[in-house]
Design a protein around this nucleic acid. Structure first.
Length: 418
RNA sequence: GCGAUCGUAGCUCAGUUGGUUAGAGCGCCGGUUUGUGGUACCGGAGGUCGCGGGUUCGAACCCCGUCGAUCGCCCCA
């Protein structure tokens, strides 16, 4: 590598080969499944005014306080490369009058940016698929959204992953629970880990899923959300769980599952690989492959009317790691070995003819003519066509396992050219 | 932001207690063999050993810094 060649930016990826095929498989499957549920496709800007994210996600969250790629444009506005989809979609909903379409089911996918330390399954430019239902306050919306997520994972062929489900209650329930946790952990503040002492001020809910043994000792007896749930919040959660049962979605209650972003209310969920499963091994220390929840308060934080909504996002790279057996080389019908450059024009016509007929075709037509056949024969194709000159005219010799009469089909297509 | 491990050819990797001109396999290019053939052999190109300093008569090897990768912590998809 030349020292004069610029390097890629840290945490970005150049994806090729099996990884790229797996990536495409995830996106294609998502596009197919979202149509089954009639989620409408939306395209969004990759950057927004910084306040879209800071107001929607919450100033104290890690995402906003230290992970955003923000910059000033030439007009002096502070802009930010999107760290997630939801805030931008909410902004679009409000600024484009999409209220007229409510309840609105939308889906999108693309790159997101977060300034973090890269490691397995975590990048500075990464990619997500995303689905949202906006303007629907009923628990059926949560069920619909989760049923799609569950079907997507099944159609991707991902095994050993379980839906972990919790409720954070409505705003009043969540605030009361939060106060209860601050009170409980505050009494033992000095015995908590350094991280959790900080969480106590910034995000006390997060202490619940701390891995530090000093914290674990107190977590078991910490106040539970269930004790703070209003009757309405409890009924909402029960509707979600019974709906999931009816949809055939397996789930597990996760009482300490909280989501990092301020806007979540009621349902919160993550699909996580089962302990010790093959999937867990492939993901390293990253565990969540799909996460989301209900964000009834988000629209108001952006100055809109109260609008209930629920959504999820999943990391394409993480999903792709779990479907790598789907990332094999794309199948090839025909490989052409051009063994004589004088037959090149014929070879070009022949390939166009075959491709017009819907066959996938590639060619070996460079390097030593004598070695082209050998190279072609190493390519995993259903048929091999050796093109050479015979008695001053181009000739084509077709070989295949003759699967479904492929040889005779090719011969018939090429006959008019000979 | 913190910690650990690691950077040698396009790829995967050797390289002895610091010692002449840094190697192999695969891949690539060319030739011979084969001539309806997926074989075998011969040859070639390609590396300022991540980058920058230092120690030494001498550094791929030891020391410092830096960049990057990997794996954890934090957080998240």
């Amino acid at each position: 590598m030349s020292k004069n060649t610029p390097k890629a930016i840290r945490g970005t990826q150049d994806i090729f080969g099996a990884d790229a095929e797996a990536f495409a498989f995830v996106v294609e499957t998502f596009e197919r499944v979202r149509k089954l549920y009639r989620f409408r496709r939306v395209e969004m800007p990759v950057f927004e005014k910084t306040e879209v994210f800071s107001r929607a996600i919450g100033e104290t969250t890690d995402v906003v306080s230290k992970e955003m790629y923000s910059f000033e444009d030439r007009g002096g506005d502070s802009l930010t490369l999107r760290p997630e989809f939801t805030a931008g979609i909410a902004r679009a909903f409000l600024t484009n009058g999409w209220q007229q379409h409510a309840p609105l089911k939308v889906a999108t996918h693309g790159p997101l940016f977060r300034y973090e330390r890269p490691q397995k399954g975590r990048y500075r430019q990464f990619h997500q698929i995303d689905a949202e239902i906006i303007g629907a306050g009923e628990p059926q919306a949560d069920v619909e959204l989760l049923a799609m997520a569950d079907q997507l994972l099944k159609e991707l062929g991902i095994e050993g992953v379980t839906l972990h489900l919790n409720t954070l209650g409505d705003a009043a329930s969540r605030d009361a629970w939060r106060a209860g946790l601050i009170d409980y952990f505050g009494k033992v503040r000095g015995e908590l880990s350094e991280d959790s002492q900080e969480r106590l001020d910034k995000n006390p809910l997060r202490i619940l899923d701390s891995k530090d043994p000093r914290d674990r000792a107190f977590v078991a007896d910490a106040p539970k959300i269930d004790a703070y749930l209003s009757n309405e919040a409890l009924a909402f959660f029960e509707s979600v769980t019974s709906g999931l049962d009816a949809a055939g979605v397996k789930w597990a209650r996760a009482e300490s599952l909280v989501r990092g972003l301020d806007y979540y209310r009621h349902t919160a969920f993550e699909f996580i690989p089962d302990e010790g499963s093959e999937a867990a091994g492939k993901l390293g220390s990253q565990s969540t492959i799909l996460g989301g929840g209900r964000y009834d308060g988000l629209m108001e934080s952006l100055g809109g009317a109260a609008t209930p909504a629920v959504g999820w996002a999943a990391g394409i790279e993480r999903l792709a790691m779990l479907v790598d057996d789907k990332g094999a080389e794309p199948p090839l019908d025909v490989i052409v070995a051009v063994e004589n450059d004088q037959a090149m024009a014929f070879a070009i016509s022949a390939m166009r003819k075959l491709r017009d007929a819907g066959l996938t075709v590639d060619a070996i037509a460079s390097g030593s003519p004598k070695k082209r056949f050998d190279k072609a024969s190493k390519v995993n194709a259903r048929a091999l066509i050796a093109i050479d000159m015979r008695d001053g005219a181009p000739s084509a010799n077709v070989r295949s396992g003759d699967q479904a009469g492929l040889t005779s089909r090719i011969d018939a297509l090429l006959a008019p050219l000979l």
